[in-house]
Design a protein around this nucleic acid. Structure first.
Length: 941
RNA sequence: GCCCGAGUGGCGGAAUGGCAGACGCGACGGACUCAAAAUCCGUUGUCCGAAAGGGCGUGUGGGUUCGAGUCCCACCUCGGGCACCA
């Protein structure tokens, strides 16, 4: 048998009892309950307001909004990672319902995007058709898993009734600006009012003197969504631009792995950078792991320092530094090759060398730069700058290790304190001056140094008369004093910079949301009024943008919508008479639809608003002062740590600032599930082979007779090691699959799939079934006597344990505790009559179909979805007697059993009287004794 | 290089600073069976021992503590993220 092939459950031979819990019977049971749940609308959650309102049912039940990251409806359906996360949320949702909560739990589809479009290009079939087929297929798969979704609330981002509001939210962003004083978004008309009142100064001069066009351009500099000519990531292989977040570390596209080039193009941007501080600061309010918070902080990349101005013949060069205290050690400056002052600074003698260097730098994409290593290169411009602290003249170089996209694209080089500057100085023979006396004893003669010194150490050579750092010993103090001096003398100021760039928001593709924007004859963008929404995606049979040679950096985008001139050109009256306009021919990136879907779940059929404020406040509003509000539990993969989670937080904050939502953050608690790994096999050429067809032979592995090597990797198509959830349902039933997925290990850990292990939880369900049901008749078959005291105690310990584990999403240990209880019942020969109900209720969140079936076999007529979850009796959680391990010098030497309420002294007396303890002590008097009530005794001899 | 995680039986994994290895897989033995499967019962960290019992055990080395898988320091290995970020 191959190691990844699932063992088939017992073939059902002729003498199999009619009501044995087999995979076949499980499927009968499961589809029966799917039908009944649907028919009865069991999982429909009432709203306080709007079309889905049922205030009587809302009253008195605390809310719980449980959310999965919604799937992309791929043509290959769900992969095993989906049921993993979905089962976890479903178990939690069901448990929450049984503990009295009003639970909002549903599932939608993130359906715009590249694969459907590419499939359409290949087949000529409209992506909407493919998408709807895929969604229908996935709905079938979801139903099969028994997920307790409120089906009325499901949405697809591609539905015009949904993207109407995506467009509407875009216009909210477009029509607002960020007030740097209040640090929040405000409506753009409030900015106009401030300009008119003279309480705020436009960036471009006198508002009153501006023409209408100038005023539009002024406002564009403030809007949170704006069109700008700026360096963007152009990907000729995809035929579109992509966001910074979609470019991999080696300078290629996240999708398709094509080269990406920095090019100046006119594109839609979102001013997410204005929210950088709040996006960092509000992480404090969130119940997320430190790892994800760190990734977001890292991406935003806030660093504090100073800007410093250096005079040159060509005007001042402004640099950003995190170490202004090292300014006395600045012995040269370096500009990025693209820096605007390079031409003016370059002397005639250096002109040829500079031009050559710039040309070679421009020809490299990020990928090449990476591959060429870190060897420092650069060219002297021929000019000098003046160090503002002491007036020294220092040479100005250009080098590609200084990046135009960060800080000001120029640095002051302090080779004694920065490793890159140190290497550069060594390579080109530039001076290195020590400005600290390093604490590692290397001395201040830099000619003997092997590397730069970074850290706290007393300053030397760092005084100019009015600024005295010498004898200061801490960097923090040095920075503070230098910043003060720079500000006082007009040479600089304390500054904060970010790695985060504004979000490139347009794509030259077809399968996305059109922009609700038209341009007038002067090329100025105008928002369409709400009553013209949605702007429907126009019909066409040309779905592809023009794509280019992936390496053709100088190609230009040509979107599918550009070709639809009948659609592009329209006449509208936007307030000043009917005028000709041109529609925007870009579409939004795939992230747009996922930036707010959780809000639409709250009120999916509302035609008047994207969500009724009363519904938002109920489901997502803060439940205590200073809390963030937001989804109570959000489960999904860590791969969205920066992209989706950053963009969605940004949109939510804009909506909050504008008063549309009461929650500050969209997702209060985030839980990242691990990956499902599986064995993958490579042949001798390094090609992956179908894992299902690999044979285990003599401790090795063979495919088609040839030896192959095994490794573990993320389950999926590329490693040819995927296992289909449907197949598992087919063989064992969904309940077994659910239990297996949850019992493999903690939800947040990646775990290897082992098909042979599935049988463990399958056997557990069979045993539960057999303890309650007569396999021949299908009738209930309980032990008629009530349970003995030990069994009752075990039941209550199990109840307390399962509750505790489920409260903390520890499904694996919750299941283990149920198995323990059931194993005990198996030893008793069956389930005592008073244990059956609580056992089945505890099983209900985990294996809902079999639990419902057992519940009805036990004579109950209603679904147990809303049955109260069992409550442990505290009196039964403590035993009459406790067995104490007795340690001598920390090693267990004996055990004594004493009454549970015995005092510490009594326990110790019993322990000291124990014969093994007496023997071990051999007459010695204990130096010290420790009694931990209920736990153990330790005697130090 | 920097920032996060994680290292426990043959395997997946349990263990509020208090009996290491719950639960499951696998393996071994037994019952049932003509036989097998399924099911049920039992054993299963490792070493010494016939047994009773004992030694050793949570990546490595130190430390704190009556007591450390758990806390602290240093290191090793693996996984993830970021990276010429000034």
């Amino acid at each position: 048998m191959s190691p990844t092939e699932a063992p088939t459950p017992a073939d059902t031979p002729a003498d199999t009892p009619a009501f044995r819990y087999t995979g076949a019977l499980a499927q009968v049971i499961e589809s029966r309950w799917h039908d009944r749940w649907d028919a009865e609308g069991t999982f429909e959650a009432p709203n306080p307001a709007g079309p889905l309102a049922d205030p009587a049912k809302v009253a008195g039940r605390p809310r719980k909004f449980i959310l999965d990251m919604f799937p992309y409806p791929s043509g290959t359906g769900l992969h095993m990672g989906h049921p993993l996360g979905f089962t976890a949320t479903d178990m939690y949702a069901r448990y929450m319902r049984m503990t009295g909560h009003n639970v909002l739990y549903t599932m939608g589809f993130d359906a715009f995007g590249l694969p459907a479009e590419q499939f359409a290009v290949q087949t000529g079939q409209h992506p909407a058709i493919t998408t709807n087929q895929n969604i229908a297929n996935i709905r079938t798969q979801l139903r099969r898993l028994g997920l307790s979704h409120d089906h009325r609330r499901s949405i697809s981002t591609t539905d015009p009734g949904y993207y109407r509001w995506t467009q509407w939210i875009f216009l909210q962003v477009f029509n607002s600006w960020f007030d740097p004083d209040l640090k929040k978004a405000r409506r753009i008309d409030e900015l106009v009012a401030e300009f008119e009142a003279g309480t705020r100064a436009p960036k471009g001069g006198d508002w009153a003197a501006m023409s209408a066009s100038e005023r539009r351009r002024e406002l564009e500099q403030w809007r949170l969504a704006y069109v700008s000519e700026a360096p963007v990531n152009w990907c000729p292989g995809l035929g579109t631009v992509v966001a910074n977040e979609e470019v991999t570390a080696d300078g290629r596209s996240d999708r398709g792995n094509f080269p990406v080039f920095k090019r100046n193009m006119r594109q839609w941007m979102m001013r997410i950078t204005t929210y950088a501080d709040r996006l960092i600061d509000d992480l404090e309010l969130l119940d997320w792991t430190d790892a994800i918070k760190a990734m977001q902080r890292n991406w935003i990349g806030r660093s504090e320092g100073a800007t410093v101005h250096f005079d040159t013949a060509a005007g001042p060069i402004t640099v950003f530094t995190t170490r202004p205290d090292t300014l006395f050690g600045a012995t040269f400056m370096v500009l990025a090759p693209e820096h605007g002052l390079v031409d003016a600074l370059t002397t005639p003698e250096q002109a040829a060398a500079v031009a050559e260097y710039r040309a070679s730098a421009a020809a490299k994409d990020d990928y090449d730069r990476q591959n060429e290593g870190r060897e420092k290169t650069g060219v002297f411009t021929g000019s000098y700058a003046t160090n503002p602290l002491d007036g020294t003249q220092i040479p100005v170089w250009i080098a590609d290790y200084v990046l135009m996209g960060y800080g000001t694209g120029a640095i002051m080089a302090v080779p004694c304190g920065d490793q890159r500057d140190f290497e550069f100085a060594r390579k080109f023979g530039l001076p290195i001056v020590a400005i600290q006396d390093p604490t590692d004893g290397r001395g201040t003669d830099t000619s003997t140094w092997a590397d730069a010194f970074v850290g706290d150490a007393p300053y030397v050579n760092s005084s100019n008369g009015s600024l005295v750092l010498d004898s200061v010993a801490s960097v923090a103090e040095g920075v503070r004093l230098t910043n003060e001096w720079l500000a006082a003398h007009g040479h600089g100021e304390a500054t904060i910079t970010y790695k985060l760039r504004d979000w490139l928001f347009s794509r030259q593709r077809y399968w996305g949301e059109p922009f609700p924007i038209v341009y007038d004859v002067d090329g100025n963008p105008h928002a369409l009024p709400d009553d013209l929404l949605p702007v429907n995606l126009p019909e066409t049979d040309q779905f592809s943008p023009r794509t280019f040679d992936p390496d053709d950096a100088m190609s230009n985008p040509e979107s599918p919508l550009d070709r639809l001139q009948d659609w592009v050109n329209i006449e509208l009256d936007l307030g000043d008479g009917v005028q000709p306009y041109r529609r925007d021919t870009n579409v939004m990136p795939q992230w747009a639809g996922s930036c707010w879907y959780e809000l639409r779940y709250l009120d999916p059929t509302n035609e008047q608003a994207f969500v009724d404020p009363a519904n938002e406040a109920y489901w997502m509003g803060p439940t205590e002062p200073d809390a963030s509000g937001g989804v109570d539990l959000y489960v999904g993969g860590v791969e969205h740590a920066v992209l989706h989670l950053l963009y969605a937080r940004f949109w939510h904050k804009v909506l909050f600032d504008l008063g549309h939502v009461s929650s500050v953050e969209p997702f209060h608690r985030l839980f990242n599930q691990g990956y499902i790994l599986a064995a993958a096999y490579q042949d001798e050429r390094g090609m992956y082979v179908e894992a299902a067809d690999v044979q285990a032979v003599d401790g090795g592995y063979r495919y088609d007779g040839q030896p192959v090597t095994r490794e573990y990797g993320k389950m999926g198509k590329s490693l040819k090691n995927a296992i289909d959830p449907d197949e598992m349902c087919q063989q064992y039933g969904a309940d077994t699959l659910r239990l297996y997925l949850m019992s493999m290990g903690p939800l947040d850990a990646s775990r290897p799939w082992e098909s042979k292990d599935v049988v463990g939880v399958y056997r557990f369900l069979q045993r539960v079934w057999r303890n309650i049901v007569d396999e021949d008749t299908g009738a209930a078959r309980l032990l008629p006597e009530p349970a003995d005291a030990d069994t009752v105690r075990l039941l209550h310990r199990t109840i307390a344990g399962v509750r505790e584990e489920l409260d903390n999403l520890r499904f694996n240990t919750a299941i283990a505790k149920l198995i323990e209880l059931n194993n005990h019942l198996t030893k008793l020969g069956g389930c005592p009559v008073d244990i059956a109900d609580p056992l089945v209720k505890m099983l209900a969140p985990m294996a809902p179909h079999v639990a419902e079936e057992l519940w009805s076999t036990l004579g109950h007529t209603d679904s147990l979805a809303f049955e109260p979850f069992p409550v442990a009796d505290p009196a039964l959680l403590v035993a009459d007697t406790v067995e104490y391990p007795v340690q001598i010098n920390g090693k267990v030497r004996s055990r004594v059993t004493v009454a549970a309420d015995a005092s510490g002294d009594d326990v110790l007396a019993v322990a000291l009287a124990d014969e093994k303890v007496v023997a071990a002590l051999a007459g010695a008097t204990p130096k010290k004794t420790i009694v931990v009530p209920g736990r153990m005794v330790n005697i130090v001899a």
